[in-house]
């Protein structure tokens, strides 16, 4: 039986792991390769690394981190941040990443999804979407780490990304991210039910119940979190054992 996936996410800046709270206030939380090994041993199903460095030097450091992670762990991992064109995708896959996650770049140039899918296969392309529920109840997609609002609606854009060849959708609600009050399960369920590719719920987990809700109520295929794992507030083996007790299929 296909398992629901638990995915720790590591934000990497200049070779170190950091985690933003509501996209600001970066905190240093350690060496990404150590985390990768630890999470793999603990039973994480996949890993995501986001490069949040802006500088050229930081980018080079990140490629090195990707290679070292690929050597160290035997579970799939996705990398994102700073991927704007096919050459960036090649560089990450050559370094050993299994998938790439794109956000602003594909909103600016949706055809990039078609190009990645044609050249490397859909399974490589994760369409990451940062969205916010506006006052009128519509979900708007945002660019540049949530700084620039676009005209794209979450559900329309996710559908377009799927049709262009994205292999998965990674959906972050900006209002839920980092505040540990749970995932936006209504929006997640609507998204998941309207797509034929897997949906990863991202941002908002504070308790193990939040993960169960993302799977049961939000129909998510996978759930991603960062600080609750990095700071040991939730331990992955305990989380997965508990989810299985709740009747949710997980890999133990």
């Amino acid at each position: 039986m296909l398992a629901k996936r638990i995915i720790p996410c590591l934000d990497v800046k200049d070779g170190r792991t950091v985690k933003g709270v509501n996209f600001v206030n970066l905190r240093d939380a350690g060496d990404p390769v150590d985390f990768a090994r630890l999470y793999s041993e603990q039973g994480a199903d996949e890993l995501v690394f986001l490069d949040i460095a802006a500088s050229h030097e930081g980018r080079k450091t990140f490629v090195d981190v990707v290679s070292r992670v690929a050597e160290a762990v035997s579970i799939p991992f996705t990398v994102g941040g700073g991927i704007h064109e096919l050459d960036d995708v090649s560089r990450m896959l050559d370094a050993g990443a299994d998938k790439v996650s794109l956000n602003s770049a594909i909103l600016r140039n949706p055809k990039l999804i078609d190009d990645i899918a044609a050249k490397f296969g859909s399974q490589v392309c994760v369409a990451a979407i940062d969205a916010r529920c506006e006052e009128d109840g519509t979900w708007a997609c945002y660019l540049n780490g949530g700084r620039i609002r676009t005209e794209y609606n979450l559900f329309d854009w996710a559908r377009e990304a799927q049709e262009r060849g994205a292999g998965e959708i990674l959906f972050t609600s900006m209002d839920h991210d980092g505040v540990k009050q749970g995932f936006p399960n209504d929006a997640l369920a609507r998204l998941s039910d309207n797509l034929t590719i897997p949906v990863i719920a991202s941002g908002g987990a504070g308790t193990r119940e939040h993960f169960a809700d993302a799977f049961r109520l939000g129909h998510a295929d996978a759930a991603l979190a960062a600080s609750v794992f990095h700071f040991g507030e939730i331990l992955i083996p305990e989380l997965k054992a508990w989810l299985r007790e709740q009747g949710i299929s997980v890999r133990l």
Partner: peptide
């Protein structure tokens, strides 16, 4: 049945 394709992830 609402089937997601590709079959992606850990299966027994």
């Amino acid at each position: 049945v609402h089937l997601k394709v590709p079959h992606m992830g850990w299966n027994s």
